Computed example of a mutant assay.
Amino acid sequence: MLHVYIEPVPKGQWGPIDGYRIETQDGTRLSGELLRSERLAVSQAKLHGYVPLLATVRIPDKAVAEHWTPADKAPVTV
Rank of each mutant, 00 (worst) to 15 (best):
Q25A: 11
S43Y: 08
K73S: 11
W14D: 15
L40W: 02
L54T: 04
T24E: 08
E38R: 13
P16Q: 12
I59Q: 15
G49E: 06
G27F: 10
T56I: 01
W68R: 01
H48A: 10
E33L: 06
A71D: 10
E7P: 00
Q25E: 12
G12K: 11
P52D: 06
W14P: 09
D26N: 15
A74C: 03
L2M: 11
T77I: 08
H3F: 13
K73C: 06
S37N: 05
L53N: 04
K11F: 06
E7N: 04
L53H: 04
M1S: 09
D61C: 03
T69N: 11
R36L: 12
L47Y: 09
G32A: 07
I17N: 01
W68K: 01
I22A: 09
P60I: 07
M1L: 12
I59V: 15
G32N: 13
M1W: 04
M1T: 11
G32K: 09
T56D: 05
R39T: 12
W14M: 11
R58E: 15
P70G: 07
H48Q: 12
Q13L: 15
L35I: 15
G32R: 11
V4N: 05
G27Y: 13
P75C: 04
K46M: 07
Q44S: 09
Y50E: 08
K62M: 02
A65G: 03
V42N: 07
E33Q: 09
L34P: 05
P52G: 06
A74H: 06
R21F: 11
H67V: 00
T24N: 03
P60S: 12
V76P: 03
A63H: 09
T69I: 14
T28Y: 15
K62A: 01
M1E: 09
K62N: 01
